[in-house]
Simulated assay, not measured.
Amino acid sequence: MTTIYKSAAGEGEIRRRYEDALHTWPVPAEHVRVPTREGETFVLVSGPEDAPPLVLLHGSGANAVTWQGDIASWSRYFRTYAVDLVGEPGLSAQSRPALETGAVAQWLDDVLDGLGLTAASFAGTSLGGWAALDYAVRRPDRVARLALLCPGGIGRQTMGWLFKVLVLRLFGRRGRRRSVAVVAGLEAPEHGPALDFLELTFSHFKPRTERLPVFSDEQLGGLAMPLLVIVGARDAMFDSAETARRVRRNVPKATVEVLPDTGHAILGQTGTVLAFLRG
């Protein structure tokens, strides 16, 4: 298998930083390792055992601590399962199932089966939003509710940011940090720690480079479960206006929110997502 890291030393540094972050998880959690056809999958489990299940899928270049700011609220009402996607810089296997096939859904079948879940609500962001939506399309009986933040696979995947990033990265660490800020849309001073972590990650990690498959109008129209989609109007990676337009046109009962001054990284939506998930 081709490694997803640029070096063994870089992999070790990312892993150490992630394991340190896991120690700051704000609520009690179980660290569960689920065997799947794609290799072992790491899941961070919190919340009451008898609460409704909620599966959380992070984006590219990230891991379960994506949800650190949300989990204290969500785990009061749900049994939360923050999954490290395979092929991303977490503690899951480095395999990367093909996106254009049903392989990602089959992997999630294994994850849910290994956790003893017949169905769950899902929340996903970016690549994780694409994976959650793909699963809802292919396994609608296993998805109770679906909350998507800046999801891929609906609006056009834009590439205009790429040239700017390539230029900025010529300027060393400061340029790399600035390029991460441009893509994520995290440019306020309080986003400094998040940018530091992202800069470290993308200094050592090789992300997926293929375009995400786009869901058809028919596939979107077939979604019968309650659906929430939140996008940032300034998203540098996806055409958020097209995402909102296609969801509204094809899924009339969906709730769609466009945040005017927000980029690709969508923060501060804990209460909105919780209110939707609780119905």
Rank of each mutant, 00 (worst) to 15 (best):
A147C: 09
S126R: 04
D109R: 10
A136V: 06
S121W: 02
I154A: 13
D110N: 11
G87P: 04
G124K: 09
A105S: 15
Y135C: 05
L117T: 10
R142V: 08
A120M: 05
G129E: 05
D134G: 12
V137Q: 04
T118D: 14
A119H: 08
Q94W: 03
S95L: 10
A120Y: 00
L127E: 00
A144T: 13
V143L: 07
A105F: 00
A147W: 02
A147I: 06
A120T: 02
W107F: 07
A93N: 10
R96P: 01
E100M: 05
V143Y: 00
A123N: 00
Q106R: 15
A136R: 09
G102I: 03
V137C: 13
R145I: 01
L99W: 10
E100Q: 13
G114V: 05
L133K: 02
Q106G: 11
D109T: 01
L85I: 08
I154S: 10
T125Y: 05
S95T: 15
S126V: 06
G155P: 03
G124D: 04
T101Q: 09
G114D: 04
G114T: 03
E100P: 00
V111C: 08
S95D: 14
T101M: 08
D110C: 11
V104F: 03
A105R: 10
L91T: 07
V86C: 14
V86W: 08
P151I: 13
G87M: 10
V86S: 10
A136S: 04
G153N: 11
R139H: 07
P151C: 13
Y135L: 15
C150S: 15
R142D: 08
S126A: 14
A144E: 14
A131M: 13
A105W: 01
L85S: 15
D110P: 02
G153I: 07
A136M: 08
Q106L: 13
V137Y: 04
S126T: 08
A93H: 04
D84Q: 13
A98L: 10
L108H: 11
A103P: 00
Q94R: 14
G87A: 12
A93I: 06
P140R: 14
